[in-house]
Nucleic acid binder design. Sequence first.
DNA 1: GTGTAACCGATTATCGATAGTCGGTGGAGG
DNA 2: CCTCCACCGACTATCGATAATCGGTTACAC
Lengths: 234, 234
Amino acid sequence: MTPDEPAAPPAPAVTPLVTRLTLARQIRESLVVRIVSGEIQPGERLVETRIAAMYGTSQAPVREALRELEAMRMVETRPRRGTFVRHFVQQTLRESYVVRAALEETATRLAMLAGTMPLPALRAEVKAMRAAARAGDAAAAARASVAFHRHIVDAAHNELLKLSWEALQIEARTSVTMVAAEVKLKDIARDHAELLRSIEDGELETACKHARDHQWHYADLPHDAHGRARRQVS
Amino acid sequence: MTPDEPAAPPAPAVTPLVTRLTLARQIRESLVVRIVSGEIQPGERLVETRIAAMYGTSQAPVREALRELEAMRMVETRPRRGTFVRHFVQQTLRESYVVRAALEETATRLAMLAGTMPLPALRAEVKAMRAAARAGDAAAAARASVAFHRHIVDAAHNELLKLSWEALQIEARTSVTMVAAEVKLKDIARDHAELLRSIEDGELETACKHARDHQWHYADLPHDAHGRARRQVS
DNA sequence: GTGTAACCGATTATCGATAGTCGGTGGAGG
DNA sequence: CCTCCACCGACTATCGATAATCGGTTACAC
């Protein structure tokens, strides 16, 4: 059944979105922003059909997006009951730093033992952080920080470790922390420079401990972005 | 996953799976086991419609299951291309012990700092291991070992840590190791008893290091179980 | 022979419809 | 007045169908 005449798709005119990503992915991204920003409240119910209508799609892509959010621990789904925004988004944020600490300490140990630590790349990222600090570009600083730590995790050459680390959705959380904890960009650059220094010095245990403390530090910071966002509504 | 091709007649006499969980959840669990056990090969493509037919469901729940597996990083999805089992899921038996070491060392630290280490439960599991060793019951020993470590991870009271740990699918791998590395049951009981001892002594850093070394030890043993498991299917 | 374009079979992404389940509600009974 | 239970509306879980894409292949001009 092939029309030898190209039935010319003349004016679909209804697909304005430069859709190169799937709908589900786009919906997820949008929801993440709305949850993290506090626009959608903790405890709030996410009704699939309503969200579908809101985005002008069917229920299916919305469900997929919600499953992904659930995997990110941003929402909680009870079968046949519904999906709700978690209350402890900020607690989870804090927890994630402890887990990162565990994984990155080990990555540091593995990479140093194997002698695969990519020092030039690490120096470059610190440099990028300093530049971002000067420019006041928080997004750039966050990117450089994530890249710095990813270099280390990669250098460990342990795929499962990498896998577990990536599963923490570091990107998605880092920017949140920077806003929530009101971290100074200059402090970020300095902290990483210190960590790098101890790695360069080659003192294994010192560097490992430094790697761990580096993350535990963030776990201790106050994260009240959500409290703040909540307050202005209630 | 070779299509045994039962020509799937419209008689869906397919086992209605003890449905109390959603279909998607059940399918996910099933796929996890099949991937970790090596029944489904790394790099293998997971065709949605075929899996749906296999479980006697429609495509929708399968897609949801795959999205969850993707979030667990066990598979990789390229939009409009398909879903593939990641390559390193398979090779990770040895790696998993390094990651476990990282997580359990941290769990030990958290639990000891918080004073929530469940000593009686740990002692009970060691006792169970000794009994299993005497009885020559490898399965029981494996169960007790997993339970021992799970107690510690629980005691850390860090949900994300727990989640990361559970994602390693320890159960699925432990029994494999015991066969593959030909671990002596008595050694298992002894190793855990020693670890417990150092925890009881309350020396934080010593216990943490012990927790780490305990797992690194297994990483050093020869493991060819997955190779074996793979062989028997292909 | 070789390169390009239209074609094809296979499979994913999305839709619209429907069966079932859940929590709440209002009336009967205590 | 309070408790219990069938009924109701809202929503989720799942299905079957359809539109869109992808990679490979074939046809055709050079």
